[in-house]
Structures are given as structure tokens and as C-alpha cells.
Simulated scan of single mutants.
Amino acid sequence: MADRPGAERGRPAGAQGAEPGSDAARVALNRARAAALARGARPAARPGRAQGGAGAGGGAVARRGGAPAASGAGPDARDPQTVSGSIDRLVAERGWQAPVAVGGVIGRWDQVVGADVAAHCTPETYADGVLTVRADSTAWATQVRLLAPAVLRRLGEELGEGVVDRLVVRGPAAPTWRSGPRSAADGRGPRDTYG
């Protein structure tokens, strides 16, 4: 631009016939910008550009309120999040740590209590620190009741103390003689059949 006659720095080549006050205004604007930069003020985003992008100087552009926009190669809250991170955050926000931990132990029940006990005893429910398990025979129900302190100690090691306070062992479900749509409503059993 300097090789053309009349071309000045910061002035377009076709603006030779511009009004004489425009040079003074441009010089005053440049001085004001230089003074603002010397004070440490950051340039705001130009109208028409999206706020929060990088400016011409490559730095962060100030948002409304003066907080600089986050930019860079590091992850931040605006980036896509991993599924495990989102689930961990949801569990923590809802206070589901204990039920989720118990669910994990129930999924590994045979590793926690041993293959023999797990073959004859399965967990059913967990609520308010009480784990209910069902044995497949009355003999195994009695055996698991005797092993309850050891099972609670093992659950304490896996989950932390106080998550499971009590272990309720139920035997097998009693047989029912109700069958069909026309069974007796009062639950009559076999009466003297086994007498």
C-alpha cells in the first residue's frame, strides 16, 4: 500500500477523497485504544462476532461482566462428558452411593460369600441397611443365619461399615394349594390330609 501515492497507513486506497475530519477521528480512536490497552483493558467482541471466541490477538475475549471466556486445549464443562463421569455425578447428586454399592456386591455375590453359600442363597432386597436373602432350603437358611456375622463382616469390608446393618435370611417359599381361577378365597389348606 505504501507504493501508491496518497495511500496512508490505516487508510484504504480508495478513500483518498474522504472528508478531512475522518483522519483526525481515526487517530483519536487509535490513541484511545492504545490508552485502554496500557491500562490493561481487554477489547470486547465486535458486534456480529460470536462472544466467547478468540480475538485478533489470540487471547480470550471478555464476556459481559468482564469474565474471560474459557479457551484452550484442556477439557472444561462445555466439552462432551464421558458416560461413567455423568453416572458418577448423578449417583453423587442423588445420594445413591449405598444402593449402588450394594447392587455391585449383589452382582458379585458368589465372590463375596463364596461359591457354596451363593449356590444355595441369593439376595433379594436391600432397604434401609437391611439385606434380605433367600435360601433354597430350611437347612441352608439355618446355616446362613449362623454365618450372618461373618457375612456382615465381609459385606463391611466390601462396602464400608454401616452400609448393611442387618442380614435377614428367609427360607424357601411355602407351597401353596391355590391354583386355578376358582380357588377358595379364605386360603383353605389340605386340613387333615397330612394328619
Rank of each mutant, 00 (worst) to 15 (best):
W109H: 07
D76R: 11
G48P: 11
R134H: 08
D110H: 15
A35I: 09
G114A: 08
G58L: 02
A35R: 08
L90E: 13
R89V: 15
V61Y: 00
L152D: 03
R89G: 14
V169N: 03
A54E: 14
T138H: 13
L37N: 04
E93W: 06
G57P: 00
L37M: 05
R145D: 03
S179V: 11
L146C: 00
A41M: 02
V113G: 03
R145S: 06
G66R: 08
V133M: 06
D136K: 03
A56D: 11
L159Q: 07
R39T: 10
A135D: 09
T125D: 01
A119V: 07
A141P: 04
V164P: 14
T176Y: 03
A139R: 14
L155V: 15
T138K: 07
G85F: 09
V163R: 12
V151R: 00
D88N: 13
A38I: 06
C121I: 04
D110Q: 15
L131R: 06
T132I: 07
A119Q: 13
R78D: 14
S86R: 12
G66M: 01
P68N: 02
L146W: 11
L159M: 11
E161L: 09
A118F: 13
T82Q: 04
V168L: 04
A77N: 08
V102F: 04
A173T: 15
D110T: 15
G95V: 03
S183T: 09
G180V: 13
D79T: 14
A70S: 06
V169Y: 04
G162I: 12
R178H: 07
G53K: 08
S71K: 01
G95T: 03
G156Y: 10
A38K: 10
Q111N: 12
E93D: 13
A174G: 12
H120A: 03
W109R: 01
T138C: 03
P99E: 07
P181E: 14
V151A: 02
A36Q: 11
